[in-house]
């Protein structure tokens, strides 16, 4: 059955890659959906995570330490964006762009060059490969396992007093201040958590491909938003845990879609254009449908 075989050989790498990237999409979910901020820091912090982790591994450090360090670096990146936005009153979008640009230089310093390779060095995936698992199987287990742990931890966190206050801040900051919560702090904590996860995702991606590259973050925010929207459209947005699961599944489906369109012969150069158009279409759909409905209402006698 050659069709099934080719479908599997197409889907498995896409699923594996999607799970590694899903950690980033969870991070973007925190800012874009919970805090209601489009945070462009992501483009820098994903590279930062990969750079920090691969630099540690290349220097002979343990992959686990490198991965944890990547998470901490992401927290710091989020702290900077959050401080620029809340304490210095720079608009959120611009704060993210400033950190993103600054991180370009930081990442070059961390890596020393524009890209570093950790080929044949020990990574987080090596122990799984040593068990006889294939490359993609190890990505799926590691990525899927981490994603599951993270969404469970976030489900708990956003149910706590602190997490509830962060959710409310994205919803109605006026109300939150009236209830005695410092909204600045909530936004900073949210941005830190988000970028920590994005960097963690970067560390996983860097280890999976055995190198980090200064350009690897380019377009990641759009990939993240596309995944987020795909997940919401396909798997709904009802219960909070379901939403988090749908974010992960969205990241996987996005990769499968990309794999399919590439298989159908799309020029790889057009990939970013394709993703951008998809996101623009998805984001404008609610407005366009509302406008269409509105125009119907204006018609007399209908």
């Amino acid at each position: 059955m050659p069709f099934i075989q080719s479908a599997v050989s197409l889907a498995v790498p896409a699923i594996a890659l999607g799970l590694l990237w899903s950690v980033m999409v969870i991070g973007i979910y925190i800012t874009y959906r919970i805090l209601d901020i489009a945070d462009l820091t992501v483009e820098g912090s994903i590279t930062l995570g990969a750079a920090a982790c691969t630099a540690v591994i290349r220097a002979g450090g343990s992959p686990a330490v490198g991965t944890i360090l990547a998470f901490i670096c992401g927290l710091a990146a989020g702290l900077i964006t959050g401080t620029l936005h809340t304490k210095l009153r720079i608009p959120a979008l611009l704060s993210g762009i400033l950190t993103m640009i600054a991180l370009w230089s930081v990442n070059l310093h961390v890596m020393g060059t524009a890209n570093i390779s950790i080929l044949r060095m020990k990574t987080l995936f090596t122990p799984l490969a040593n068990l006889g698992l294939s490359k993609y199987a190890s990505w799926i287990i590691m990525g899927g396992g981490l994603a599951l742990i993270i969404i469970t931890a976030l489900y708990w966190f956003f149910g706590t007093e602190l997490g509830s206050a962060i959710r409310a801040t994205g919803n109605n900051p006026n109300m939150v201040r009236a209830q005695g919560v410092h909204t600045d702090t909530m936004i900073i904590v949210g941005l830190m958590l988000s970028n920590g996860l994005v960097s963690l995702s970067g560390a996983l991606i860097g280890q999976s491909q055995s190198f980090a590259d200064i350009q690897m973050g380019m377009g990641s925010i759009v990939i993240g938003l596309a995944s987020l929207i795909v997940g919401e459209v396909l798997f709904g947005k009802r219960h909070f845990y379901v939403r988090l699961v749908s974010v992960v599944l969205g990241a996987v489906v996005y990769r499968i879609i990309i794999a399919v369109v590439m298989e159908l012969g799309m020029n790889p150069n057009d990939l970013k254009l394709f993703t951008a158009i998809t996101v623009a279409a998805a984001l404008s759909t609610p407005h366009l449908t509302a406008a269409l409905r509105g125009s119907h209402k204006l018609k007399p006698n209908s």
């Binding site: 007093e161 939150v176 005695g180 919560v181």
Partner: peptide
């Protein structure tokens, strides 16, 4: 907060002036 439940809104208000901890909300 429109996207939060009635009881979640009340719970947020019930902690007015208090530190927000990692206890269940």
């Amino acid at each position: 907060a429109a996207d939060m439940t009635i009881e979640e809104n009340l719970a947020l208000a019930n902690r007015r002036g208090k530190r927000r901890t990692l206890r269940w909300g």
